[in-house]
Design a protein around this nucleic acid. Structure first.
Ligand SMILES: [Mn+2]
Ligand SMILES: [Mn+2]
Ligand SMILES: [Zn+2]
Ligand SMILES: [Zn+2]
Lengths: 138, 138
DNA sequence: ACTACAGTTTAGAATCGTTATAAATTATAA
DNA sequence: TTATAATTTATAACGATTCTAAACTGTAGT
């Protein structure tokens, strides 16, 4: 979708210099027609395949963290062994398939609205996330 | 609460030999009047203080995993940097205080019942967990 | 365009939580 | 009491992530 020009602008507006690595990462993340979930190693593979160019792991970590801070990505907590990221930054919930290790978005209409009736003095709610773990039937 | 005898019995019934290490772990976990949340390093400190006895990290990991498999503990997914465990094995939801890194149980009446309207063929729901992240106000 | 400089990338080291290994110790069935 | 399998332990290995510091690059100012 996005042209390289768009990403250059997006990066500049975010106070990030538009390097070829960052543009490659943008293309891997934001060219897709649909939003998707990924781990860092997933993403390295996507970039190196799509851009046919090596990229340092450190650069991918740096850029993903920068994008997360800017709100271009969300992190989804699944387990303590790996970080999962999401290019869908809207509030939404997830299925997690324990067998395939795959995350699936739930649409708003798939989950009753969640109402939290308790509040902690001095604290405010930052996010409410539902994780539905799936098992193979039988 | 529990006497050493009870734990010995519990362990035996679970097919686990009642070693002094496992009994110490049981006391640390199940003597408390209330259920609680902990990380492995938390637990090592609790055991070594309470039992005034050194215990190997490997033994703690082994035993926690054995207890988890038996259903005596639950693991709560908060982030990818550390595993959190819960001595409350009932279905329930959590607040997570991002500042203090503390987990707080939500009671059933604090959260509207959650109804998932989507289903994935061949898969069944194993668990539905809500995590409410808290920030300091202002 | 040239320069200077801060920002960025990089390979590799370090760190941290966790898991594996293999030898010593211990619980228990016979 | 003895034999055996289970358990504990110190320590090594591991994998994900972060750090480091040197090389490289984008850009503001000339
Ligand atoms: Mn785990
Ligand atoms: Mn993180
Ligand atoms: Zn998602
Ligand atoms: Zn809990």
């Amino acid at each position: 979708m996005g042209s390289s020009k768009e990403y250059i602008e997006k990066l500049r507006k975010s106070g990030l210099r538009p390097t070829k690595q960052r543009i490659n990462i943008c293309e891997a993340l934001f060219d897709a027609e649909k939003t998707f979930h990924f781990t860092i190693t997933d993403l390295v593979k996507i970039i190196e395949t799509k851009a046919n160019q090596k990229i340092s792991l450190a650069t991918v970590y740096n850029t993903i963290h920068a994008f997360q801070k800017k709100g271009y990505l969300k992190e989804i907590a699944i387990n303590s062994s790996q970080a999962y990221f999401d290019t869908n930054t809207t509030d939404h919930h997830h299925f997690f398939d324990e067998k395939s290790k795959e995350l699936i978005d739930l649409k708003d209409e798939d989950v009753h609205p969640i109402k939290i009736k308790k509040n902690i003095p001095g604290k405010k709610i930052k996010s409410v996330e539902v994780l539905v773990r799936l098992d193979s039937e039988n």
